[in-house]
Design a binder for these strands. Structure first.
Lengths: 217, 217
DNA sequence: TAGATTGTTAATCGATTAACAATC
DNA sequence: TAGATTGTTAATCGATTAACAATC
């Protein structure tokens, strides 16, 4: 019963497994061995087996893995079999984009509210959601169980919002601002840092020249 | 002169260093030791020194690092001192959001074109860019040097686009689709997988229960 | 049963951390 | 010079890969 935490490296690979297994299902492939999957995913079969065995014995010796049941196991592990209620805070371009994302709902992520502080945006309807005044956030949380808050607001506005979220039982924050936010230990956070991502791309485009400029790197 | 590649783990930390150093500059802090920076960033001082020394000796013994010059070094390493020309392919919600992002330009990322295949979107002006017909992409690339293409299109449309990009000297692809795209070796790719990100958040919210369900994990 | 492939232990590799001599 | 802090080597830790006994 040593429920020691799974390493982040493993967790980050789970959605990719889920994606590949979904593709296999779509192609009516019923079984797959770790070696076959490793070729498709371009990782080692050892890693695949190690990863899965963090959670249980999903395979059958001499046979491989049943695609459908493995798919469902990973679905459960990722918590995709339970419904998550989301709210979007900050309905700018990015917030609107997320509100309009259709595929979240298929995976159990249901957006039940949208908030902003701008007079121009409050009251507008985006993707069938009427944007509410951020002032009503606390009140909304009293009445509605919210699992995840999507923060598509400027960095400096985050702290205040997180205070409100944390007293109302919100479990996770999906942060799109560049700030390093602090959340209470019972909340999880996941940040999407678009500019960091673009900068690493920029680095890699320029890597050769950079390493010439800074020799013996 | 052993220009061996820098590990991805290091590269991914560079934007974060850059961000913190920028904050220090904004606060008129002129020097910083690795220990002081390590406290602020919540990583070890050893790691900071190791990371920087991949690229050069930026510090001064007994003193620490000059914030401004270190900031500029990292800026150069990330390629932020050179101008990058971007195009956005796929002007849906996410594409529009990226077109409207103001802060990219400050860091040398200039969007010079936007493309879509939908009659309804072609011809529209978004963030001062007239959306062009994707059919004109190849022609546009002949006339304009483009460094990075932002792919905000559905998965199945990516391959065809990458073919066009690759024959025209585009160096990098910033991919927002969920597909695993293949690019020629001289192109770099960086993917932002929003649903993967949301799934890992979901996992962590549910982790405790999951590990109970799958004991001895 | 023979063949295949898992689950799992052991070996390797790489990244992080610690320690300290070099030097400002 | 004494104190501070880097750059760098060595030690540790953790993650990946290899190997193989277990077993379908």
């Amino acid at each position: 019963m040593d429920n020691k935490k799974i390493s982040l490296a493993v967790i980050k690979r789970l959605p990719r497994y889920y994606r590949y297994l979904g593709d296999l299902l779509d192609n009516d492939i019923q079984r797959i061995s770790s070696v076959e999957l490793s070729k498709r995913m371009n990782i080692t079969a050892s890693q695949i087996r190690q990863d899965f065995n963090n959670f249980g014995c999903f395979g059958i010796q001499g046979y491989g893995y049943n695609v459908e049941s493995l798919y469902k196991e990973i679905q459960t592990i990722l918590g995709l079999d339970v419904n998550h209620k989301l709210i979007v805070i900050g309905v700018g371009n990015l917030g609107s984009a997320i509100l309009n994302y259709k595929s979240f709902k298929n995976r159990g992520f249901e957006i039940i509210g949208a908030f902003d502080n701008s007079e121009e945006i409050i009251g507008k309807t985006i993707a069938d959601k009427e944007v509410q005044d951020i002032k009503n956030l606390s009140q909304f949380l009293d009445k509605n169980k919210v699992d995840i808050a999507v923060l598509t607001i400027p960095s400096d506005a985050c702290d205040k919002i997180i205070d409100i979220l944390s007293v109302n039982g919100v479990r996770g924050v999906w942060n799109f601002s560049n700030s390093e936010i602090e959340v209470p230990s019972y909340m999880m956070q996941e940040s999407v840092r678009l500019s960091d991502s673009l900068m690493t791309l920029s680095y890699r485009i320029n890597e050769e020249e950079i390493l010439k400029k800074y020799p013996r790197g």
